[in-house]
Design a protein around this nucleic acid. Sequence first.
DNA 1: CCTCGGAGG
DNA 2: CCTCTGAGG
Lengths: 285, 285
Amino acid sequence: MTQCGRAHPPGRAGYPSPVTVVTSVNVNGVRAAAKKGFLEWLSATRADVICLQEVRCEPGQLPVELRELPGWHAVWAPAATKGRAGVALLSRKAPERTAIGFGSAEFDNSGRYVEIDLPGMTVASLYLPSGEVGTERQDEKERFMAEFLVHLTELRQRAAEDGREVVVCGDWNIAHREADLKNWKANQKNAGFLPEERAWLTRVLDEAGYVDVVRQLHPDQVGPYSWWSYRGRAFDNDSGWRIDYQIASPGLAERAVKAYVERAATHEERWSDHAPVTAVFDHRF
Amino acid sequence: MTQCGRAHPPGRAGYPSPVTVVTSVNVNGVRAAAKKGFLEWLSATRADVICLQEVRCEPGQLPVELRELPGWHAVWAPAATKGRAGVALLSRKAPERTAIGFGSAEFDNSGRYVEIDLPGMTVASLYLPSGEVGTERQDEKERFMAEFLVHLTELRQRAAEDGREVVVCGDWNIAHREADLKNWKANQKNAGFLPEERAWLTRVLDEAGYVDVVRQLHPDQVGPYSWWSYRGRAFDNDSGWRIDYQIASPGLAERAVKAYVERAATHEERWSDHAPVTAVFDHRF
DNA sequence: CCTCGGAGG
DNA sequence: CCTCTGAGG
């Protein structure tokens, strides 16, 4: 682990480094992404923790460049079905604890959730099912949402008791508000912007007590979108959706000093249909 | 039809042009081939008739560049199963007759045989099943061979009665003799070089009365191979097989003045794992 | 318009 | 190591 210390003043107790940079990105197939520029982005990023979704690869299928990531500790949580879903967590520091799944009989092997403890904070990578209205896949999404809300509530409580902070990053596959997608009117009956999905996200914030880190720092901005369909000219027209979030405990969220979408990361050579969502937490404040 | 006459003396009765150039090539997916150089090869070829195999495309799926081939008449014979097999015939002159299949209940819809009549000669495009020892697909290959030998015999007889010549071109998926593949010893138990397959090809020549045009003109040559696996470095090592043949009636075969494999056609940018097999028939002799 | 699996080659 | 499906996105 060759991560070098940066020129920051000392942080608060429990945070060995005064600043933690967290990034989340749905890579849409980590092997394909690696061939198109993901590795260059990775070698340039200043993130301390990276949450990946849609890895779509069993650990045994990873090419060397991905199996051996110098400077990183990796936890891979593939789906039982080959080539589907799959999440991972990369961290510069070794995790104190690792957990795959959130205690769900149905979803723990579906490659949709992995959680690690780092000094003072828990970081999770989430890939919520994408759903499609009128299909069994929408029912699955709803079952996931119901179970996962319980987990989020318990996670917050446990963390609070332990004096830890929490951030759940990933592809939530729901745009929360009208400002979170280009064409909200046309999408009110489409999966990803259904009233019940939006209401569920509101409950994540209001009832489970989390904060949408990007929105907190940019309350009046349109977007910033994090996903643009590969179909048509969605990216060029910025016809996107904000469906990738960092959802943090209030104590962590209030330490967020920056939060943004790295749209340019996938601009020149597009290596995913999602862009990285990054937050900088400064533990000195 | 903009095919211009060439500076040849007049041919024999029944052959409006004194020379007929016939090419056969397995394109391994005509859409993929078109993106990689097949169209450039096509625009440069001097062939009068082209037999294609493994077109792997329904006529409705053809991109414009393939749907509209100026100067060519095309007959497409796709397989019932999408993306599989499929043969076609392109001719500068309009066919006098077109037939898909050879009267087989099992195989007429399998995209493996199409036949046209041109002035004085019948040209067929064949894609014989490839087979694999110990599988149902080898049984299928053998059933095809049995039925097809009957057809070849009848085809010759009918043609002789009508005073026509015949050439059946295509991917026969059998190397006939030891000189027809790089590593014959190691392949004696593999589909494509089984004793019974080789014996069947001998019957095509000796019993049904056809001539292997390339071998006739190059009796002592190793190969020339017409297919090199995409696996490993088969092409670079010239580790190939001669499995694409022009099998002609004796009266036509004796008019062959040239017969060769266009290995260079797929050398620079490889657009198929097979190379075109071309024969020039001169009707003045 | 992508990525992946699997069949067929 | 190719080219196709078809599912999932």
